[in-house]
Design a protein around this nucleic acid. Structure first.
Length: 596
RNA sequence: GGUCCCAUAGCUCAACAGGAUAGAGCAUCUGCCUUCUAAGCAGACGGUUCGGGGUUCGAGUCCCUGUGGGAUCACCA
C-alpha cells in the first residue's frame, strides 16, 4: 500500500511543475503531521517553495492546496496558516489503511532477510565477575537493536566476545587456589559467576594488604604495587597459561565453566540469546598473525625493539601499539583478530555492530581504521553502538567500593515489586503460583527493560536504587497494562460474538482517527530505529500509542456501542493497537502478558 | 593540554532531516470507579531549552565562543 506521505510528496512535485514550471524531487518536499491546534492531518511546509512560486508563503500554500484538492482524491480540504499548508485527508484513506494493516500478519516489518546480513555483538563480559546494571543496559540495547534490524529486513547474527583470558582472570584463579579450599558453586550454594567474583574480590583484598605491608617496610606505593608477591604470582600464572601448563589450563577451564553456567542462567532470565560465541583465548592468536601479516604488507611498522605499531597521524590520530616488544598481544590485537575472523567466517556479512560503552569510542575508531587499512572495505559499515554509563546518585558504579548493582539482584527485585503491586491490586485470583511468578517476571523485567531502553543510547543515565523503577506513568507496565486491556476487550467481544471488521463509509471519531494515524507510523518508526540503531524510538512510539489508546478507551465505548459498524471498527482498532504494541515491545525484548 | 560526548520544567526523559504556541512521566493540587481491567482518564501548576554571538523567512536543533559535567589520549582491558 502506498503511504499517504509519498502520495502527497508526489502531488506537490506535480503541483510545482504544473503551477510554477519547477522541478523538485519528492523526498525534498517537507511534510509533517499537522499540529493538534490546527485543522488537518498533514502539513506541507511551503517556505522552501516560495522562491519557486514567486508568491507570498500564504499565496503559495493556497495555490498548491487547490491543486492538490482537485487532483488528489485523498485530499478533501486544506487551509493555510502563514507558510504552512494543512491538508485534510479523506476518511476513506484511513479506513483502507486500517483494513490493510489488519490483513498483514507482520505489518510494519520488512520482508525477512531482504536487507542483507548484519552482526550484532553485545554483552562482551569478563569471566572474573558477575554481570551488573551496566551490562544490563548493554545487553538489552544490543539485543533490541538486533531485533529491530531483523524487523527492518536484515539477517542478523547475534554474537558475544568473551574476555576469558588475561591477568584479571588469573587473579581470581589464584585467589581460589590459595583461599578456596576446593569450594565449588554447589558446595557454596552460589551461582558460578558469583563464586568466581568472590575470589576476584579476595585477590584484591590480599593484594592491598601486601602493598600495605611493603609500604610499611619502606617501599614506595608505586614499587609496592608492582612487587606484591601475589601479583607476581598471578603474572606467573598467566605465563603458564600461555604456555598451556596443564594444571593452570584445567583450573582455568573449570572456573570459566562455573562462570558460564552463571551467565547462562542470567541470559535466560533476561530473555536474550546468541547465535555464536567468540572467545578471546582463540582470537588473540589470529590477531597476532594478522598484525604480522600487516607488517609484511607494509601497513604496520615494526620497530627495532620488536614492537609493532600503526601510524594514524595522517588520519588525525596518533601511533598505536599493536604488539608488545615481547610479541604478546594487546587489547587491539585480539579485536583485530576477532573482526577478521568474523568477516572470513561470514562472507555475506555487510558489517558488524559493537555494543560497547562510550569509554571505548577511541578504540573502535582506531580499530575500524586499521581494518580498512588491511583491506577490509566492509569495516566502513561497522558501527560502534556506543552507550552512556548508568550512574548512581553517588556517581559511577565501582566494584571495589561495593556500589555495583548486581544484574540478578535487580531483576529479582523488579519481579518482587511487580508481585507486591499485583497483590495489592488483587486482579490475579485463579492463577497458580507458577503462573503468578511468570507474570511478575514479565512485568518486573518489562519495567526494567523499558526503563533502560527508552533513553537514547548515547546519553548517560541515572539510576536511583532507593527510589526503584516506577510501574506507573511512562513505564513498561503501563504499556503492558494497555495491551492487556485490548486483550480483555477482544476476549469479551468474542464471547458476545462481536467481530472486528471495517465497513466502508464508517465515520471516524477524532480519537479513532488519531489512533489510526499513529498505527500508520509504525513502519516508519521501525525504519528510523533501525537506521539510527536506537530502540528509544520504538519505546517512545509504543508509549505514545498506548497513551492515545488509553484516552480512547475511557472516552469511547466499544462493546457497549450499539451501531454495529462503529463497534466493529473500534474492535479492529483495538486489535491492531494491541498487535502493534505487542510487536513494538517485543522489539525491545519485553514480553506482553494476557492479563495483569 | 588535544579530541569526542552531554547540558531542555523541582526530578527522570521526549521533540523526524532546522518549521507553527517546546511535550510526557514523577512530584504538588482538583475532579472521575453501580459502566469494556483505575498499573487508568480529564484538568491545574510548572520553561531565559547553561551564558553570549552568528547563519536565515524561521534555531532546543546548524556554526563560533564561554561555563559546567563526563569520557578518552597506556607495551591496561
Amino acid at each position: 500500500m502506498k503511504t499517504i506521505e509519498s502520495i502527497l510528496q508526489k502531488g506537490v512535485t506535480e503541483a510545482a511543475k504544473a503551477l510554477f514550471d519547477a522541478d523538485i524531487d519528492a523526498p525534498s518536499v517537507q511534510l509533517q503531521k499537522t499540529r493538534k491546534e490546527f485543522e488537518g492531518d498533514f502539513t506541507v511546509v511551503v517556505f522552501p517553495l516560495v522562491r519557486i512560486a514567486k508568491k507570498s508563503p500564504e499565496e503559495t500554500g493556497k495555490t498548491i492546496g487547490e491543486y492538490l484538492q482537485t487532483h488528489l482524491p485523498e485530499v478533501i480540504g486544506f487551509n493555510t496558516v502563514k507558510g504552512f499548508l494543512n491538508l485534510s485527508i479523506a476518511a476513506s484513506y484511513w479506513i483502507d489503511f486500517i483494513r490493510y494493516a489488519a490483513s498483514e500478519a507482520d505489518f510494519g516489518f520488512s520482508p525477512r532477510q531482504s536487507a542483507g546480513q548484519m552482526m550484532v555483538e553485545y554483552s562482551s563480559p569478563n569471566t572474573n565477575k558477575p554481570l551488573h546494571l551496566g551490562h544490563l543496559r548493554n545487553i538489552f540495547l544490543g539485543h533490541s537493536v538486533a531485533n529491530i534490524l531483523e524487523a527492518a529486513g536484515h539477517d542478523v547474527l547475534r554474537v558475544q566476545i568473551i574476555n576469558d583470558r588475561g591477568i584479571h582472570i588469573c587473579k581470581s584463579m589464584l585467589a581460589w587456589q590459595r583461599f578456596g579450599n576446593g569450594e565449588t558453586p554447589e558446595s557454596a550454594g552460589l551461582k558460578g559467576d558469583k563464586l568466581v567474583g568472590k575470589y576476584y574480590v579476595a585477590f584484591d583484598k590480599a593484594y592491598k594488604e601486601e602493598i600495605k605491608a611493603l609500604v610499611a617496610g619502606g617501599k614506595s606505593e608505586e614499587a609496592a604495587a608492582k612487587e606484591a608477591p601475589i601479583l607476581l604470582e598471578a603474572q606467573e600464572m598467566l605465563r603458564k597459561w600461555e604456555q598451556r601448563d596443564p594444571e593452570v589450563v584445567d583450573l582455568w577451564k573449570n572456573m570459566n565453566g562455573w562462570v558460564y553456567e552463571g551467565f547462562d542462567y542470567t541470559y535466560h532470565e533476561m530473555g536474550v540469546w546468541f547465535d555464536k560465541l567468540y572467545y578471546e583465548s582463540d582470537t588473540y592468536l589470529i590477531g597476532k598473525e594478522e598484525v604480522l601479516r600487516g607488517v609484511e604488507k607494509g601497513v604496520f611498522e615494526q620497530r627495532e625493539d620488536g614492537s609493532v605499531w600503526v601510524d594514524l597521524t595522517n588520519d588525525g590520530l596518533d601511533q598505536k601499539l599493536l604488539l608488545r616488544k615481547d610479541g604478546t598481544a594487546v587489547y587491539m590485537t585480539q579485536d583485530i583478530g576477532t573482526a577478521i575472523l568474523r568477516f572470513r567466517e561470514h562472507p555475506e556479512l555487510l558489517g558488524q555492530i559493537y555494543t560497547v560503552g562510550n569509554e571505548q569510542e577511541y578504540h573502535f575508531k582506531v580499530l575500524f581504521m586499521i581494518l580498512e587499512k588491511l583491506g577490509f572495505e566492509k569495516a566502513k559499515n561497522n558501527f560502534h553502538l556506543s552507550y552512556g554509563m548508568v550512574e548512581l546518585p553517588e556517581g559511577k558504579m565501582k566494584s571495589r567500593e561495593g556500589t555495583v548493582v548486581d544484574a540478578d539482584d535487580i531483576m529479582a527485585e523488579m519481579a518482587a515489586t511487580a508481585g507486591s503491586i499485583a497483590e495489592e491490586q488483587g486482579k490475579l485470583d485463579g492463577l497458580s503460583d507458577a503462573e503468578k511468578e511468570a507474570l511478575h517476571k514479565k512485568i518486573g523485567y518489562g519495567a526494567l527493560k523499558y526503563y533502560l531502553l527508552k533513553v537514547q543510547p548515547k546519553k548517560t543515565m541515572m539510576f536511583n536504587p532507593k527510589e526503584s523503577i516506577d510501574f506507573f506513568g511512562n513505564t513498561g507496565p503501563f504499556i503492558q497494562f494497555n495491551y492487556v486491556r485490548t486483550r480483555a476487550l477482544l476476549r469479551n467481544a468474542a464471547e458476545k460474538g462481536f467481530s472486528a471488521e471495517v465497513h466502508d463509509g464508517v465515520e471516524l471519531s477524532p480519537e479513532e482517527r488519531e489512533l489510526v494515524k499513529l498505527l500508520h507510523d509504525f513502519p516508519a518508526v521501525i525504519q528510523e530505529a533501525a537506521a539510527s540503531y536506537d530502540p528509544s524510538h520504538i519505546a517512545n512510539y509504543a508509549y505514545d500509542l498506548v497513551k492515545m489508546y488509553s484516552s480512547f478507551y475511557q472516552a469511547v465505548p466499544v462493546l457497549k456501542e450499539e451501531d454495529e459498524s462503529k463497534r466493529s471498527l473500534r474492535l479492529t482498532i483495538t486489535e491492531q493497537t494491541g498487535n502493534v504494541v505487542k510487536r513494538a515491545m517485543n522489539l525491545l525484548g519485553v514480553e506482553m502478558p494476557e492479563r495483569m
